[in-house]
Amino acid sequence: MNVAAVFFYLFSAIMLASAFMVIAAKNPVHSVLFLILAFVNASGLFLLMGAEFLAMILVVVYVGAVAVLFLFVVMMLDVDFAELKQGFLQYLPLGSVIGIVVAIELLLVMVGFTQSDAALGAGASPIQANVSNTEALGLVLYTKYVYLFQASGLVLLTAMIGAIVLTLRHKPDVKRQVIADQNARTRADAIEIKKAPSRAGV
């Protein structure tokens, strides 16, 4: 067993365990932290495969942005997760029976899983030696996968529109920052000079 294999099992094991803890943890903040741990381990797995760019992106975007945002949200919202989990025990027996059945069946599939001959041959599509990871992505993103890339962009756009539509509220009595107004202010309308008589008190 070489080093790569050791790390593969290490990362995988930690990732699975932390993924389990995401749903098992009582404290939602802990859940998010376990999620971050899972992401980090996933990026480790990418590294093992030689996909450095993806590994870094995963860390930067998911860990740095998404998960941290998540953390803020969870901490700011006062969600009583204990209440949400009510009824969990009530359905536990039936749920666990179904769950165990599904799990066993999936294990059986794993045991009986075979790959087609074509898949065995095409398993790896090696990157050319003198092309860097990022460059390889750049080569296909707007050529071979332009359709999928654009489609992904539209999906994200839709998600953004949706988030805005559903949450953004124009409350009339809320003060807003208007940059143009700020820039357009002159000294004349910002400051009023009053001559205060000295020694007269207010």
Binding site: F113, T114, S116, D117, A118, A119, A122, G123
Partner: peptide, 17 residues
Amino acid sequence: YGFAGTVSLQGIAAAIN
């Protein structure tokens, strides 16, 4: 995908055969 090694629908059909 794991079985066929391709995401193409026709490729999957060919792999299943």
